[in-house]
Structures are given as C-alpha cells and as structure tokens.
Design a protein around this nucleic acid. Structure first.
Lengths: 333, 333
DNA sequence: TTGAAAGCGCTAACAG
DNA sequence: CTGTTAGCGCTTTCAA
C-alpha cells in the first residue's frame, strides 16, 4: 500500500483538505501549517496520485498526440516541438502511431478520449468527413498539426503548401526548365493536393499547359526517389530539373541520378520540400522549401493550451511562414 | 456531464456491476443481458472512463517512456518498436524527452510514477547511482532500452557494444590500417565506454599499443563529423580508415572528407555504427554495425509486459545480436 | 485558515 | 448469472 494524502493528514495532524491545499500550492494555508505538512510529506515520501486527482478534478494534464509514424524524420521533429511546449505548460503526452490507417486513427481518437486527455493534437494525411465528425464532437479541444482539414472546421497549424510549391517550381522554371519533373507519393492527402496545385499553377502561369508525363507518382520513400530517378533517365529528352515533394524523395532522386552518372546540379537540378536535417546531409546539399516542423508542433501545442485554458483565440487556422532555401542541388540563377 | 456506467445501468435495467462486466468482457453474463447492455451503450454513446477505471483497478494500461530525444533518428526508431508492441498488448505510451539531463531524468521518472504508469521504459546515456536507486525502488517494473546500467541491477535490452566495436575496428585493421581513427562524442556513457573498449581491444590484440592522437572527441552530430574530418586532414600522415561511433558522425566524416577532395573509400575508409536509415542514404553507402533499434525497443517493451504480468523471466539482461554490414564506404578485402 | 463530507466513475469482493 | 456495497485517492464546496 502506498502513502496517501490521508496518511499525511493524520501524521501532520491536519485534514486531508489542508494537505491537498499545500500540495496544490493554494495560498490559503498558514505558513507554519504549510511547513509542517511539507515536512511530513518529505518524511513519509508521499507522492500524489495523478489518477485520483484526475478523477476528482476532471483534468489529467495530459494531451493525446496522434501521429502517422514517429520514426519518420519529419514527424519526430514535429513531436519534439509538441513535447517541449507541453512540458513548458506542465502537460504530458500520450503518443500513438496511426500509420495513416483510417480505422486505426478513429480508434486512437476514441482511446484518447477514454483516457480523458485534456486536449488532442492530431496529425494525419487525409481528414475525411468521419474524422471531422469525430473531432468536432470531441469533449476536449483539438488542434491539427501539419494536417489540413478541407472543411476548415478544426483548428490547425500549417504552412501555405500551395504557395510554397509554387515558389519552388517557379525557381526551377526561372532557372531554365519550362516544366520541371514533379516527383510525389500517390497518397491523396490535402497537403499533397496543395503542393500539386502550386506546381501546376507555376507552370501554367509561365507556359500554359502541364504535361502529365512529367509527373511521377511513387511512394514517399528514399527508395522511391531512386526509382523515380530511373524512370526519369528512361524518358527521351527529359526536363533538366526535378521538384520532389519531400526531402527524402529528393535525396533518392539525387542518388538515383548520380548512380547513373548524371551530375546534380550541372546536368539536372533537384529541389526538395521540408528542410529536414537530411537536406544538409547530402552532397550536393539540397535546395528545398523550409517547413518549420518543430515550430508547427510547438505552435499547435501552444494553440491547444489556449483552448484548454478557454482563452480567446483570434485565428484558429494558423499559417506559419515558409521559406525557400537555395543550396547546391540547384544552379545559381 | 458525460454518460456514466450508472446511466447505462439505469437505462438497461441492470446493475452497474453487470454493465462493468460486459464492458470488460467478463463471460459471466447471460447473452441476452449482454446484448441488451451493448445496445444501450450504443444508444447512449457511452464511453468508459479510463481514469476512473485506473483508480479503481490500480491499473492504467499505460507505460512511461523516457527518451533522450525523440527527434533523433536513432531513438525515434526505438520508440516505434516500443509503441508497436505496446499497442499489441493494449498499452498506451506516455512519452517524454529528457535531453540526457540528469535532473530532468529524475523528475520525469517521478512524474511517470505519479501518473501511475504500469511500467517504465527508460533510455539514457548515464545511469548514476541515483538513477539506479530511483529505478530500483520503482513501484512498477522498469526496463532499460539501449542503455547500460553498470550495476546490472535493472533489466535491460542491448547489444554487445564492446564486441561490435571490436569487430568493426578489426575489419578496418584487417583491411590494412593498423590503427583506424576513432571519432566519438565526448559524453561519458557506459555504451560509449564499451565501444571505446572494443576499439582498443582490437588494436591491442593486433598491434600492441594505442595512439591517443587517433582518437577524436567531438559531439554526436553530423556537423561534428565534418569537424572531425577536418581535424583528420590536418594530421600528417593520418591513418587511412575512420571508425565513427554513430552513423550520423560517419556521414559527417564522409562528407567532410569529400569536401576536401578525399575519396571514400579509395583514399580513406569509413565505418559507422547503428545502421540507421542514413547508412543507405549516402554515397558511398555506409559500412556499419547493425544495431537493431526497432527490435531493441520492441523486445524491451515485450520484456516489460512480462514483468507487468508477473511472468517468470529467465534472462533479465537481454543481449540482442548485432551484425557487421559491409557496404561501399570500405574497401573489399 | 481549517475541516467535514460528498462525490468523481469505476472495479471487485461478496452475497444471493 | 446478477446485484449491493465498499472503496480507489483526491478535489471541492460549504461551514465554521
């Protein structure tokens, strides 16, 4: 049996209520009493039971985090931002991987509610109506991180993916390739749609029409990037620039190209997206779109704390600034 | 106010106990009653409160995970292994980053206990006596993952770091470099000590004595790898092989060398440690020690479930097999 | 400034 | 097979 608040009360000759007050830093306790209680807490090695506290107060000081895959270099950075801010506000995180599997996502959302989290941060590719339904009837605040809800019902933190992709593509176009090849994953997420739209807009604004042969759909993996590079080299007279939807894909493309003796950026330019740590861990270093993953996580968590505190929030759909960083996988203009 | 078990009981004309039984899958319920209860659960949208359950049953079905840094490519892979097995056994994970900061580590351990986790998985560099004290008086089972307790008091899952480093070093020695350069981080963890010992043993067994000039202490980062490469190139007549304590360091070394026009492996061979995904995302691909991160996490979690179920465990300090994989950053023998 | 007492929602004997 | 009844350890009025 563990030491409870009751044991402390008895030993200190006060009531449970008083012990509770000192544990919770309630100022309405005479300093002498406080000291006495603190001493016996120390002496007995009392440790508050957060579960009991949660039941009584209806607050668990933990938030749920649903993430596609924590082992991804992209999402783990986001998670770090979330946890740092959570810690700052005295929350703990229950973390679960969803693998972008809808059934699992819905199940996890419910598990989080059962665990009585005070709030939920959700990351995922596709937000269906069922997701929205589930999330919008949530008993606690929810925030999406790096995840777009097409209905804009759920608060979220993102960058402007369309514009970012537009800028990256435009850069390549200005560098002399009328339609850069676009390498992306097949998955039908809202974020990917936006990136695609930005790519298309850049081309249409500068040349008119888009040749779909130059859009390569693979997976979002490094190996797929290599595959894509192989597909590219098999085209006759292929464009001399590639825009990859993620840095990992871009690394694959670069290496796939190099493995065939093609030089980057002299023969073919490559542009990435995300600016994960990978971008500087490759030769040539990768020109890419800076998506501030850590900040997205941090801001999403901060937003959530505001909701949990019932503070007034001006803008529920936060758009963080992105940036284009030119390194050595593209040519100087 | 939420729907409680009491509401369901009333609506279904049964007692709370019966509702509790069907929710928990207790077989001692007449099928007809079960069905009736299930229906009203459905109708009312009842969702069990895990906190109340935790208080009453003294089991939370959540385990704590203390990790140095989830954004590290190494630890995030471990975390994935942990979560997968946790999910398999119906546990959730409370994840916290410690940044290898002792004070924070101790505090987190206590937070986990307050939250009444059913078990704890701990990862960290240095296990001091205070850590051991704290962990060994834990109210719940604990398992270390990729973390060595010098006193061997706490159950753990690791590989044989000494032997692994020995083998990597020996490979380089056999390839013609009597003393390969060893690049490592300064941090004084037990794991690092073992790697160092393996490196030393390999050299001593083959040549006699170790030249400390060939041991470079930097940080455990990619950039430090580059720094190390620069230090190396400034030595006169430096050894033509480098053993890096982590893959990330190894990538830095490779690129630092390449940036100076030195060819890997023709001019200098490089060997890594861990076999993170980085190892194949570099040119030349990295020869390295395979440390099965995912498996270490998975096995640690599995071990923990056994402890939590009070099953008998034969070996409390699990040593998983490692492996040497030769890719293109080293020469063929 | 302190204490008494009523829950929070559920589990787990125990009885029947 | 089902119901009654104590708690689990803490917070939170309400009174004093």
């Amino acid at each position: 049996m563990n030491i409870t608040i009751y044991d402390v009360a008895r030993e200190a000759n006060v009531s449970m209520a008083t012990v509770s007050r000192v544990v919770n830093g309630n100022p309405n306790v005479k300093p002498a009493t406080r000291k006495k209680v603190l001493n016996t807490i120390e002496r007995l090695g009392y440790r508050p039971n957060a579960v009991a506290r949660g039941l009584a107060s209806k607050k668990t000081t933990t938030v749920g985090v649903i993430i596609p895959d924590i082992s991804s270099i992209f999402f783990s950075e986001l998670a770090r931002g979330i946890d740092d801010i959570a810690t700052m506000y005295k929350y703990n995180i229950i973390l679960s991987n969803s693998d972008m599997n809808k059934e699992k996502e819905i199940r996890l959302i419910n598990t989080m509610f059962e665990k009585q989290v005070d709030g939920l941060i959700y990351m995922g590719a596709t937000i269906t109506d069922e997701h929205v339904q589930q999330l919008k009837t949530s008993p606690v605040p929810v925030a999406l991180a790096a995840t777009i809800d097409p209905t804009e019902t759920i608060p979220s933190v993102n960058i402007d993916y369309e514009q970012a992709a537009y800028e990256a593509t435009s850069y390549l176009i200005d560098n002399g390739t009328p339609q850069p090849i676009y390498v992306t994953g097949v998955e039908e997420s809202e974020v990917n749609k936006k990136k695609y739209q930005g790519y298309v807009r850049a081309i249409e604004e500068s040349n008119g029409s888009v040749n779909n042969d130059y859009i390569i759909n693979v997976d979002f993996s490094y190996e797929s990037g290599i595959d894509a590079a192989n597909q590219i080299t098999e085209m006759d007279n292929y464009p001399k620039a590639v825009f990859a939807a993620t840095d990992e894909l871009a690394l694959g493309v670069i290496h796939g190209l190099q493995d065939k003796g093609i030089k980057v950026p002299e023969d073919v330019e490559v542009f990435g997206f995300d600016n994960t740590r990978l971008a500087t861990m490759v030769r040539p270093t990768l020109s890419t779109v800076v998506q501030p993953m850590y900040d997205i996580g941090a801001v999403a968590m901060r937003l959530l704390t505001k909701f949990m505190n019932k503070e007034n929030v001006e803008e529920k759909n936060v758009v963080l600034p992105h940036q284009i960083v030119k390194r050595n996988s593209t040519k100087e203009k």
